[in-house]
């Protein structure tokens, strides 16, 4: 439980956010780049295990457009969370650069920039239980960000903001004095969303926010995220392994396999004209709630060693095969994908 004393220390530390907004400035200085909010250039992320370095992500290039929901899908262990955590600076980037509103946010950056970034970028975590401090009550958890950056006029204003947010996510204001363990998984995930959204972030990373939830409450949490996104024109990176969920919420989808983006396209286009064999295998696995359709289904397995014969002199690259549609391929594969697209017909 958080006692009075601890709260006081917290009060002392709070300082208002700087007057000059670096990120607003970054946007103004590069109007030509303003439709891209996040850029990852040649990013490398590695973990040290003893003396051995394991490279999880290498040469990653990814643009996230302002106001879009970008779905990031791929199998367990492919590096989705690693990327999300690098964006909010939990994971160190050991090569390349990440920018937010054209301001560098990877590697060594000024304290001021880092602080300001925390008010603009928020993450909703995979496990609704683990991410909430069980010793703090809901009021404390939801207003933590507000307090740290003094984003309220007075106590009355703060309480009002918290209560409004509780209402928005469908939790009763009287729950404010309760503790996380008194809530169900779905309710805890909504507390996590409230804590994130109260900061009015520009950019949200939602890391499998519904995978741990019962199907019946998944829809509720999904709706909530979508409502916030549309109302505030927020940018969202939505991480998941289930394509049917991602299609429903995303504008574009990026498919990742073993640390590499293998295909990116508009959500509908990816379903309509998947090119990379891994994307096809993911699509073939989407279960349909329809016995007649399911009986005809065939699952495609992806076997990279049999399918790709990459050599150093013709290494695979992410290539734009039609406007907005990128696939990772080498030269012969590019030819094959181009033919495939012709056969499928252009974008509808």
């Amino acid at each position: 439980m958080i006692n009075e004393e601890e709260l006081k220390v917290e009060e002392k530390q709070q300082t208002p956010v700087e007057e000059i907004d670096l990120f607003e400035q970054g946007r103004k200085e590069h109007p030509e780049d303003d439709d891209t909010i996040v850029k990852m250039r040649d990013v490398r992320i590695a973990f040290k295990i003893g003396s051995i370095e394991r490279v999880i992500i290498n040469h990653l290039n990814l643009d996230i457009k302002r106001g879009e929901v970008l779905g990031l899908v791929g199998e367990s262990g492919s590096g989705k969370t690693t990327i999300g955590r690098a964006l909010i600076r939990i994971n160190k980037v050991s090569g390349g650069e990440i920018t937010f509103n054209n301001v560098k946010i990877s590697g060594k950056i000024p304290k001021k920039t880092e602080r300001l970034l925390k008010t603009k970028m928020q993450m909703i975590f995979q496990d609704p239980g683990d991410s909430l401090n069980d010793r703090a009550n809901i009021d404390y958890i939801v207003s933590e960000g507000l307090r740290a950056f003094k984003l309220y006029k007075d106590e009355e204003d703060r309480l009002q903001k918290v209560q409004q947010m509780m209402q928005r996510v469908g939790l009763r204001p009287e729950y404010l004095n309760r503790y996380p363990h008194e809530f169900s998984g779905g309710q805890r995930q909504r507390i996590g969303i409230a804590r994130c959204m109260i900061m009015n972030p520009e950019f949200v990373i939602a890391d499998e926010p519904i995978s741990a939830l019962d199907v019946s409450i998944r829809a509720q949490v999904l709706n909530l995220i979508r409502e916030f996104q549309q109302e505030r024109k927020m940018t969202v990176l939505f991480i998941a392994h289930d394509l049917s969920v991602v299609r429903y919420i995303s504008d574009r989808i990026a498919v990742i396999y073993a640390g590499h983006i293998v295909e990116i396209a508009e959500a509908n286009r990816l379903f309509e004209a998947p090119l990379h064999p891994y994307t096809k295998s993911l699509l073939s696995a989407v279960p349909f709630p329809d016995p007649k359709v399911e009986r005809k289904k065939k699952i495609i397995t992806y076997n990279p060693h049999e399918l790709h014969h990459y050599v150093l002199s013709d290494a695979p690259k992410l290539v734009e095969v039609e406007p907005g549609h990128f696939v990772r391929c080498n030269t012969p594969e590019l030819e094959q994908y181009t033919k495939e697209l012709e056969r499928l017909g252009g974008k509808k």
């Binding site: 309509e272 096809k280 699509l283 349909f288 007649k292 359709v293 005809k296 289904k297």
Partner: peptide, 22 residues
């Protein structure tokens, strides 16, 4: 309209080689 919806969704996917054989 469950079956209609799902049939349509499957039709779209059918353009994908080998996923469904009829």
């Amino acid at each position: 309209e469950l079956h209609e919806r799902m049939k349509r969704a499957a039709e779209e996917l059918k353009r994908q080689e080998g996923a469904f054989d009829d």
